[in-house]
Design a protein around this nucleic acid. Structure first.
Length: 427
RNA sequence: GGAGAGGUGACGGAGCGGUUGAACGUGCCGGUCUCGAAAACCGGAAUACGCGCAAGCGUAUCGUGGGUUCGAAUCCCACCCUCUCCGCCA
């Protein structure tokens, strides 16, 4: 949520900044809603004040045993009470309306975010390694997986329909090894605390990290309950801070979480339907940081670096881009995507998204710290994939494939794979 | 799933229909004392919002949401959560 005070005091500036990301702020609509709110709230509070004063007088009259006086005042109170109730209801409605209006506004972008709304408007920050060259025609992970007997989309479809996968044997183990490797790296070398969380969260938590009203169609909801399957553990982990005020010295908080992620992919019909690039269920190791507002951009660079480390250790060529204004997510002020080279697609594809949300999420979930003056202040929140496990598996399979259909295990993963150094094609 | 107990400020813990935003204690901040510290004593300190140039005034908040009442932390209802016992279970 953006700061409503800012909306009140500098609406034109806010509108201009939102326009950069292609969002048209209804300034007139806000103005009239805000005016209405001002009137109703003031009127309500005045009535409440009258009611409270009257109640106090009645109390005093009763204390003095002046029953006549008390009875007269109580008649007045009954009348006033009705008015108060009506006004309070009206006030509740307008406050809710205003809150809804504001909560649907996306975050303001950082000044360094490239203008534009197309993917091509993203700015490449850096590139690491060379796309691997093969002296044979490189296959994609679907064909490699079939050859290894390790990826089975037919069985998955039988179980749950499209966009799922069944992994078997050494490939399933490799998938597990990748997750372990990531967690160990982030906890052992980057100072993150490993956490395990619920895979379902309440609607309030979902609304804490983004707009539930806007994005509920992307989530799987538990039938008849206020519970959603997490589309990323950002949903569970960031909400550790919901309604909390932590001491200054606790910051920064750094959490790493391995979890499955569930996404309905409602708007992705026909996109990336082959293989396991875009599934309803995938594993991810998520990095979450809760930091002092003055440190969030520094933390953003570090967190992105932590995610990149995984790819470097796996010797996978990748690049880092700053998403364009139009592509930056609803809650984010600035996002770096890390894209890994996929020979099967002959392209760099997203494997991590690292965002600084500034106080946007913190304001939604009232996540605060006690600042240098001892006053509560909103924290800044960040997160990034470190990395998507399924897509990393794809990258490993495609980049480490051999002409005979087998794959080599990257050195960094071998400690997690027993004595296995390769996965050989199925007979 | 059944039976019971309970959810109050940073924490412990009173209050159980009326000057209670909330006693008291601990912790915290400032001061007195001290060479310094401890102890003792004095004082201060919640959050959000509204109106106002400001001083200030007002409103809301005692798990959440409703209700009763002139007035609710206190009474009633529903829900959530925690604890104890029983049952069941990975």
């Amino acid at each position: 949520m953006i700061d409503i005070q800012l909306l009140r005091s500098e609406i034109d500036t806010v509108a201009k900044r939102l326009a950069i990301r292609g969002y048209t702020l209804d300034t007139a609509g806000f103005g009239s809603l805000e005016e209405k709110r001002r009137q109703i709230q003031t009127a309500t509070e005045q009535l409440q004040s009258q009611r409270n004063a009257l109640a106090k007088q009645i109390g005093q009259a009763k204390a003095k045993k002046d029953e006549t006086q008390a009875a007269a005042l109580m008649r007045q109170g009954a009348e006033l009470g009705e008015k108060v109730k009506q006004m309070e209801a009206e006030n509740g409605t307008v406050q809710e309306e205003l809150h809804k209006f504001v909560s649907l506004i996306p975050n303001l972008l950082h000044a360094s975010v490239p203008v534009g709304s197309r993917p091509e408007d993203a700015v490449e920050q850096r590139r690491w390694g060379e796309p691997r060259k093969f002296d044979f025609r490189a296959k994609d992970h679907v064909d490699i997986g079939a050859g290894l007997g390790g990826l089975d989309f037919d069985t998955a479809a039988k179980l749950a329909g499209a966009r799922f996968v069944v992994m078997k044997g050494a490939v399933a183990r490799l998938h597990r090894a990748i997750a372990q490797f990531m967690l160990d790296t982030h906890t052992g070398e980057h100072g993150y605390t490993e956490v395990y969380t619920p895979y379902m969260v309440s609607g309030a938590c979902a609304d804490g990290v983004t707009s539930l009203a806007k994005f509920k169609d992307d989530l799987f909801k538990i039938d008849g309950r206020d519970l959603y399957l997490i589309p990323t553990s950002e949903y569970s982990v960031t909400n550790f801070m919901r309604d909390e005020i932590v001491p200054l010295e606790k910051l920064p908080l750094k959490f790493a979480c391995h979890s499955p992620c569930f996404r309905s992919e409602a708007g992705a019909a026909g996109k990336d339907t082959r293989g396991m690039i875009r599934n309803h269920q995938f594993d991810k190791v998520e990095l979450v940081q809760i930091v002092h507002p003055a440190k969030s951009y520094e933390a953003h660079e570090q967190l992105t670096g932590h995610a990149e480390t995984i790819l470097k250790k796996l010797e996978l060529s990748h690049r880092v881009i700053t998403l364009s204004a139009g592509d930056t997510g609803f809650s984010s002020a600035k996002t770096y995507d890390i894209e890994v080279w996929l020979p099967g697609q002959n392209a760099y594809r997203e494997i991590s998204s690292c965002s600084n949300f500034e106080a946007f999420q913190a304001r939604r979930m009232q996540a605060r710290f006690r600042n240098e003056k001892g006053k509560p202040e909103l924290v800044h929140t960040l997160n990034g994939s470190g990395l998507a496990v399924g897509r990393t598996l794809i990258a490993v399979m495609e980049n480490y494939q051999r002409k005979d259909g087998g794959i080599d295990i990257p050195l960094a993963l071998r400690p997690y794979m027993g004595k296995i150094e390769t996965i050989e094609p199925a007979r």
